[in-house]
Amino acid sequence: MGSKRIEVVSESMFYTLMAFLHGEYSGVEIASMVEKLTKGRVRLGPATLYTILGRFEEEQILMETRTEGRKRIYRITDKGIQMYHDEHERLAQCLADAATWEEESK
């Protein structure tokens, strides 16, 4: 079945992409990494996690490299890295805009 492109990169998606920049991981490892990275602020519910993994794999943002017992191990693709950097740039721009605006408001 053909799929629609992911139009909005949500917070959970962004942190998932970020976590994969360090290497190859399973879904469970990613969930705990994100929770640790955000000091518990962002938690990936199991359905959210597996929906992200499923859609990212479908969109070739992630690819499965191997299985370890029950776990499927993924790595980020070049498309995924690009997606991360695009979103990073957008968020950085947002923060820069906010800083400029706050500076001008003083």
Partner: peptide, 20 residues
Amino acid sequence: ATELHTDPIVQSESYHRLCK
């Protein structure tokens, strides 16, 4: 129990196939 979905935008993606 942890709520299954913690991100509504990601959850909307799970309805994509069904809606189609």
